[in-house]
Simulated scan of single mutants.
Amino acid sequence: GKTSLCTYLANRAALEGSKVGIIDADLGQSDVGPPTTIGLGQIREPVSDLTKAEVVDAYLVGYTSPGRALDKVLEGMKVIIERAEKLDVDVLIINTDGWVDGAEAADYKRRLVDIAKPDIILGIEREDELSDVLKTLNGKQVMHIDAPPTIKRRDREKRRLHRELSYRRYLEGAKVQSYPISWVKLQGCLPELGLPATEERVSIVSEALGFTPYHCEENPRHMLIILGKNQEITDEAVKKLEEALEKDVKVLRKGDERGVLVSLHGDDGRFLGIGVLRDIDFRRRIIRIYTPVEGKVSTICVGCVKLDEEGREVSFLGEETQEASDVKGEE
């Protein structure tokens, strides 16, 4: 009932003439902004649901639940709250996720509260399911609300379908766009790129591995090895190579990036929309993305969730055997 309550509160405030901001930090079931993001919206008049709010900005966390990316969520919350303050809203409503079980969830919620510094906290619960969380909020103004018996929890399948409909909505009108890697800043789950490795450095890699990878590129922090079809590399080989190169080694298989969800941002960092990675041509230094975003893109944030051609979640980047919703915090 969190979203229904937020919608009610936002509409009441709007009817009274208030300028209302909404932050949706429910990564897996977001209504303001695409799934895997913390969205910032604004409403000036009552809406039937929060998907009708004007999306002002969004921060890509890259996962559908906070359990794998706690620091990233907290960082994103700081960024979005700072941007919300610039909107000069009269009322700011923050919707969080439903992860409340256990000490880790309780500490996470406490840290969110420390960042948001809310005037009042509304806790919706069945029986005493928020007891662990509320123990960490001593000194805060908290109102307890019983969850309406008519509101049923979405099961995992319904949550997944809700996300897929949202992906499709945000990808409507998309087409494949090409971006020179040198023109954009890449951030997120993809290993940081560099410059193509010199022949001498490639020779060291080939000697250590016993074969020449599809591509190698290097930056001051690590060497990125791109494996081609049927090329394999063991953990032992990686350690040997790190000793030879005297720096960390990251490994990516060519084609692994296909289907990864990304967000695109303009010069001022503002969210422009989402897209789906088609491929990265490491040799020609081109990244191709299926996106409805047109015009200049300055930053591309790479997430971890992978989608198929129909917009269905299939896995995580680098973890092709695990479903994208199969992580803690997806409630």
Rank of each mutant, 00 (worst) to 15 (best):
R288P: 02
R270A: 04
E294V: 11
I287N: 03
D279L: 13
D279A: 12
D268P: 00
V276C: 07
D279H: 14
I280G: 05
Y290S: 08
R278S: 13
V293E: 02
T291M: 11
R285N: 11
V293Q: 04
R284A: 15
L264H: 05
L277D: 02
F271A: 00
G266L: 00
G266D: 11
R270M: 09
I287C: 05
R278Y: 06
S263N: 06
I286F: 09
L277P: 00
E294F: 04
L264C: 06
D267H: 10
I274A: 12
I274W: 07
G269R: 05
P292V: 06
I280H: 08
I280V: 15
R288N: 14
V262C: 13
P292G: 11
R285Q: 15
D279K: 14
F282H: 12
D267L: 12
V293M: 02
L272S: 00
V293S: 03
S263T: 14
L277Q: 07
V262F: 08
E294I: 11
I287M: 10
G275H: 07
T291R: 09
V276I: 15
L264T: 02
R278C: 10
G266S: 09
D281P: 08
R284N: 15
Y290I: 06
G266I: 00
L272G: 01
V276A: 09
I280N: 05
I280Y: 06
L272C: 01
L272K: 12
F271Y: 15
G266C: 01
G273N: 12
G266V: 00
L272A: 03
D281A: 10
V276L: 07
L264K: 05
R288S: 15
D267F: 04
V262P: 02
R288T: 13
E294C: 03
I286M: 14
Y290E: 14
D279I: 02
L264M: 14
F271D: 02
T291N: 08
L277Y: 03
D268C: 01
G275S: 12
P292D: 12
H265S: 12
I280P: 02
T291C: 10
R285D: 11
Y290W: 14
R288K: 15
H265F: 09
V293D: 01
L272E: 01
R288I: 07
Y290N: 12
R283W: 08
D268N: 12
F271K: 00
E294A: 10
F271G: 01
S263Q: 08
G266E: 05
R283F: 10
P292T: 08
S263F: 04
I280L: 13
R288C: 03
V276D: 03
R284H: 12
L272T: 00
I289N: 05
R283H: 13
I286D: 11
F271W: 09
H265I: 01
H265C: 03
H265K: 12
V276H: 05
L272Q: 09
I274K: 10
R283Y: 08
G266P: 01
D281N: 15
R270Y: 05
R278W: 06
F271S: 01
I289R: 03
G275R: 07
R285C: 07
E294P: 00
L277A: 11
I287T: 08
G269F: 01
E294K: 13
R288M: 10
L264I: 03
I280W: 07
S263A: 15
G275K: 06
V276S: 11
D268L: 11
P292L: 12
I287G: 06
E294G: 13
G273S: 06
Y290K: 10
I289A: 06
H265L: 09
T291V: 08
G266Y: 00
G275D: 10
Y290G: 01
Y290A: 03
